[in-house]
Amino acid sequence: MDPVDPVREGTRSGGSAGTGTPAVRTAPTVPAPVRGEHTHAGPAPRRARTLVRRSSVRGQVLDALRTALVTGELRPGEVYSAPALGERFGVSATPVREAMQQLAQEGAVEVVPNRGFRVVERGARELAELAEIRALIEVPVLLRLARTVPAERWAELRPLAEATVRAAAAGSRATYAEADRAFHRAVLALAGNEQLVRIADDLHRRAQWPPAGGPAGRGRADLVADAREHTALLDALTAADPDLARTLIADHFTPGCRTP
């Protein structure tokens, strides 16, 4: 299958479609669909294979679109057509439209009747509100975990923290966004509350979408500083230094200051 390479239909609010803007450079490729596994010797039912293929393509298109949102390739305020994106993906418009509908549920885009989907324009206030909600949810949990989780469990998270540092040093916003969320998910998972992890991860993802004007405000140095807070926090937790850990946790979740 052709590479997943979403491209803008290039219509800002009130503009016209089909301006031929550059393709999204950071989108991953869509490999051949994975066949379902079956325990019987005969061929798989046609419907089952179709469902696996459709779900696989839709999921990979969704991942590509999320990457494009984080990197700013899908620009706030612009409208994107499912057929145009589907043509670039080498798929029909259906999985693209379904992926866009999922993004609409997440608040990343909004439906524009008879035109496509417009990327939501986010202001500084909305991003600050998301950061505040994250702090209200995650900080109390982290403070409790700092008192109850043994040092060896914190040490197990070191590879995830170091992955965020490598991604930040490389300057890849998309890779850093994934690594950042993976680290926070692993930390919160220590609380044993799956609903907490799911809700916090959704809020974290929303906070990673850049504001109107693109991601220029958060450069490599900002990402590196953010990532190093992960390793510093693990150092404090591994050393059983709750006072330092409390300070680092509070700093990391300062509203409006930690939206990579």
Rank of each mutant, 00 (worst) to 15 (best):
P3N: 03
G15T: 01
A17Y: 09
G20A: 09
G20H: 10
A23H: 00
T26N: 15
T26S: 04
T26E: 08
T29E: 06
A32L: 11
G36K: 02
T39W: 11
H40G: 08
R46W: 05
L51A: 10
S56C: 03
V57G: 01
R58I: 08
G59S: 10
V61G: 06
V61Q: 11
V61N: 12
R66C: 05
E73H: 12
L74C: 02
V79Q: 07
P83W: 01
P83C: 01
P83H: 00
G86N: 02
R88C: 02
A93E: 11
A93G: 07
A99M: 05
A99V: 00
Q101E: 10
Q102L: 05
E106R: 07
G107K: 05
V112W: 12
R118F: 00
R122C: 05
R122V: 08
E126W: 13
L136C: 03
E138T: 00
L142C: 14
R144I: 01
R147G: 07
V149G: 03
R153E: 07
L157E: 00
T164S: 14
A170M: 06
G171R: 13
S172I: 00
A174L: 09
A174G: 06
A179Q: 11
A179L: 04
F183L: 15
L188Q: 05
E194F: 04
E194K: 15
Q195E: 15
Q208D: 12
Q208H: 06
Q208V: 14
W209P: 01
A212Q: 13
G213N: 08
G213D: 05
P215I: 07
P215H: 10
G219A: 10
R220M: 15
D222K: 02
L223W: 07
A225G: 11
D226A: 02
D226E: 10
A227Y: 08
L234G: 03
D241R: 14
P242Y: 12
D243I: 14
D251W: 14
D251Q: 13
H252C: 00
P255Q: 10
G256K: 00
T259N: 13
